[in-house]
Nucleic acid binder design. Structure first.
Lengths: 198, 198
DNA sequence: CTATATATGTACCAGTTCGCATAATAATAG
DNA sequence: CTATTATTATGCGAACTGGTACATATATAG
C-alpha cells in the first residue's frame, strides 16, 4: 500500500505553511481569518482543513516551527567555540535580523502573538510556556559551561543568567515590533551582553 | 448653560472603564467584541459609543490609563529615598503583583495586548512605542541619579541601564502571562537587580 | 477496464461581528 | 406646562466568522 494514491496535491506544504506563518506573524492568532489564510496559502478552505486541520492546529504547528528555526539560529551562533561574549552577540544580532526582517516590525512570532491569546487558550499558553522554558535551559547550559571553564563568575549562576539572557531577547522582540530600529537596539545588545557575561 | 441637562447617566464612568479594562487585558484587542464589552460594562452598545467612542477609542484610552497607573506604582516605589537596589526590587515586586494579580496570568496590559496588534494598527503601535520610550526615560533618570551620586558605576550609562531595566519588566510580564508564578519569578528580579546595579 | 483513495472547488451553514437608525425615557430651562 | 437636551433601549442589517457537505477531479491498485 503506497502513500501516493489519489489525486496529487497542487501545493507545496512547506511553501503554504511559510505563507500562513507570515499572516499569523503579522496579524496574530485572533485577527487572522480563514479567508486570510486561503488568500495567502493559495489553497481552498477544505483543502487547508484536510491537510492541516483547524486554524488553531495550523497556528500551534507554526509556533513550534518558529521555535525550531530559532533553535537552529541558536545552535549556529552559540555552538561555535569563540568566547561566550562574542557568541551571544552573534546570537542576538541574528535574532534581531529575524525580528526586524523585511522592513516590517515583526518581533518574535511566538512572543509577539502567543502572549495575547494565552489566557484564553490553555493549549497555546502551554506551548508558550514550554518554549520559554526550553530557551531558558539552552541559555543556562551555555552559561554553565562558561562558568565551569572559568570564563565568567559563578554568581549569578547559570540558570539565573539564562533567564536574564532570555529577558533581553523578549525585550528585543517587543521593541522591534513596536518599531524600534536595529541600530537603536544594537547598544541594548552590547550593554546587555556585557552585563550578562560580567 | 449647565452641563447637566438631559437624562443623567446610570453608570459610573470609572467603574465601567475598569470593567472594560479587565476584558481587554484578558482577551486582547482583536478578540474582545462589543458584546463582551456590553456584558462587562453593563451598558448598551449605543451608550458605549456615545460615551467613549469606538472599540479602538476605548482600548487606546485604557492603554494610556494602564500606563498611568504603572507610573504611579513607579513613583511610589522609586520615589522614596532608599538605595536604588531596594527601590528597584520594590518596584518590580509591585509590578509583578499587578501582572499576576487575581489568580489569572495577566502580564502587563500594554505589553501583552498591544504588541500583537501593533503591525496592523499604526495608532496603537505609536501608543506602544511612546509608552516604552517613556518608561526608558523614567528608569534612565533614576540610574543617572545613582551614577551621579556615586552609588553605581558610570558604565553602562544611565540610558543603557534604563533600557535593560525595562527588559526585565518585559520578561516579567511575558513570563507571568505564560503562567510562571511569582515565586518562580522572584529570583529573576533579585539577580536582575543585582546585575543592573553592579 | 473498475474500484479505491486522496485532493479540490462550490456553495452553504449557523453564529457573530460592528455600527447605526429609531424610538422611548428622564432630566433641566424657561 | 412645553421645549430642549442627553441617555438609554430595541433591534435591525450587511458583512464576516470558523467550519463543513457534497459533488467533482485525478491519481494509483488490481
Amino acid at each position: 500500500m503506497t502513500n501516493s494514491r489519489g489525486r496529487p496535491r497542487t501545493f507545496n506544504e512547506e511553501k503554504v505553511l511559510k505563507a500562513a506563518e507570515q499572516v499569523f506573524w503579522k496579524k496574530g492568532f485572533s485577527d487572522t481569518s480563514l479567508d486570510d489564510l486561503v488568500g495567502a496559502m493559495g489553497i481552498n478552505r477544505p483543502s487547508i482543513y484536510r491537510a492541516f486541520g483547524s486554524k488553531e492546529d495550523i497556528y500551534r504547528r507554526l509556533l513550534q516551527n518558529f521555535a525550531d528555526k530559532m533553535e537552529a539560529v541558536f545552535i549556529e551562533t552559540m555552538g561555535s567555540d569563540g568566547n561566550i561574549r562574542d557568541r551571544l552577540i552573534a546570537f542576538y544580532q541574528n535574532a534581531l535580523t529575524v525580528y526586524s526582517g523585511g522592513g516590517i516590525a515583526k518581533g518574535c512570532m511566538v512572543m509577539s502573538t502567543a502572549v495575547t491569546v494565552a489566557p484564553c487558550n490553555s493549549a497555546i499558553q502551554e506551548d508558550l510556556m514550554a518554549i520559554i522554558q526550553f530557551v531558558d535551559e539552552k541559555l543556562a547550559e551555555q552559561f554553565q559551561i562558561a562558568i565551569d571553564s572559568g570564563h565568567i563568575s559563578a554568581t549569578p549562576n547559570g540558570k539565573s543568567r539564562g533567564m536574564l539572557a532570555q529577558s533581553l531577547l523578549h525585550s528585543l522582540s517587543l521593541r522591534a515590533r513596536a518599531g524600534q530600529s536595529p541600530s537603536q537596539l544594537q547598544p541594548l545588545i552590547e550593554t546587555g551582553v556585557a552585563l550578562l557575561t560580567s
